[in-house]
């Protein structure tokens, strides 16, 4: 039995403790609101990571599922006075079905063809949200109905409760992703990413596995979207269901590190903090977009496994194993 925690575990626990007590040392709402953004983007990227990272199916329509969670929350709470917590099953259910429709339409395609098809699906969802304006208020968007601080309505006087909610939601997505990767479907999905033809020839039902992973990723995204909407207080198709948001979610995961449990978390903090910092520095002149694009290019060229790979042990073990094998053969 291990007597002591490993250094890695101690670092993780230390970071969690720091995160939990951090608001005690910060005055004002600005820093906290940026961190809440980081947490929610990390959570959204973690959801994307299930299908985009572990499955290698680069989807650019995840904003659709975030929007479904967000709209389920605001429509039910504003029009029917139902707590956002009870809107979760609705968002999850619609996302599950939408993912099935998108999956059936796109999973016969591969690589960039699949990605382009998901862009079209995401845009179709955005247009549909705009079209059904009697329910969704169309392009005008919806504001949260604020009736004072109320936990069950997810309305607060400052962003500190959202900060803790963000941590909980992020840890939930990390836990679900971890459990998924250790499940049979998780293993099959990784095999499909490795070689789809070989996986199928060995008995893995490729379409079924991809669809299951996509649906899980979509449902989880809608949960994050529900809480993220309450933090934003305003949602609209051009922001919450946009291609820009889908891309940002994917980029956060790619920069942090795909197919890695903590990569999207690292990416969430690096990308969002960088965007905030450059926005302050460059203002609205588009300089921040340039830096953001530059970061993506640098990561893809020099560290395609993402920034998290900087913290991984090197490949010395592989070489050692191969040398040992050769010696035994000799």
């Amino acid at each position: 039995m291990k007597k002591y925690l490993s250094l890695k575990s101690m670092i993780k626990i230390g970071l969690l403790v720091v995160a939990l007590i951090f608001p005690l040392f910060v005055s004002g709402n600005y820093v906290i609101s940026i961190l809440v953004n980081c947490l929610f983007f990390a959570a959204m990227a973690e959801c994307w990571n299930i299908i985009g990272g572990y499955g290698g199916q680069v989807s650019w329509c995840h904003a659709s599922f975030v929007a479904i969670g967000a709209y389920s929350n605001f429509i039910l709470s504003n029009d029917f006075g139902i707590t956002p917590f009870l809107s979760l099953p609705l968002g999850i259910g619609i996302s599950f079905m939408l993912a099935a429709v998108i999956g059936h339409a796109t999973f016969r395609l591969h690589g960039p063809y699949f990605s382009v098809a998901t862009i079209a699906c995401g845009e179709a969802v955005r247009v549909l949200i705009q079209y059904f304006d009697k329910i969704t208020k169309g392009a005008a968007g919806i504001y949260v109905s604020y009736k004072g601080a109320d936990f069950w309505a997810l309305t607060f006087e400052n962003d500190i409760p959202f900060y803790y909610l963000g941590i909980i939601v992020l840890l939930l997505t990390v836990l679900v992703t971890y459990l998924f990767t250790k499940s049979k479907t998780g293993y099959y999905l990784s095999a499909i990413k490795g070689d789809e033809t070989a996986a199928e020839s060995l008995g893995i039902e490729v379409f079924k596995v991809k669809l299951t992973a996509f649906q899980l990723s979509a449902m989880l995204s809608s949960v994050v979207g529900c809480f993220y909407a309450s933090f934003l207080t305003y949602i609209a198709p051009t922001s919450t269901a946009s291609f820009d948001l889908s891309m940002k979610i994917g980029v956060v995961a790619i920069v942090g590190g795909v197919a890695s449990l903590w990569g999207p978390v690292v990416g969430g903090f690096i990308v969002i903090l960088l965007i905030e910092a450059t926005s302050v520095f460059f203002g609205a002149a588009g300089g921040s977009q340039m830096i953001y694009g530059l970061l993506l290019i640098v990561v893809i060229i020099f560290k395609p496994e993402g920034i998290i790979a900087l913290f991984r042990k090197n490949n010395a073990e592989d070489s050692k194993n191969m040398e040992l094998d050769k010696k035994e053969e000799a």
């Binding site: 293993y187 099959y188 990784s190 095999a191 070689d195 070989a198 893995i204």
Partner: peptide, 19 residues
């Protein structure tokens, strides 16, 4: 040969054994 290059040797076999 078409290994699942993103997985270890063990996981290549274990994944299929799980079927």
């Amino acid at each position: 040969p078409r290994p699942f290059a993103n997985l270890t040797v063990y996981d290549n076999i274990y994944t299929i054994a799980l079927l």
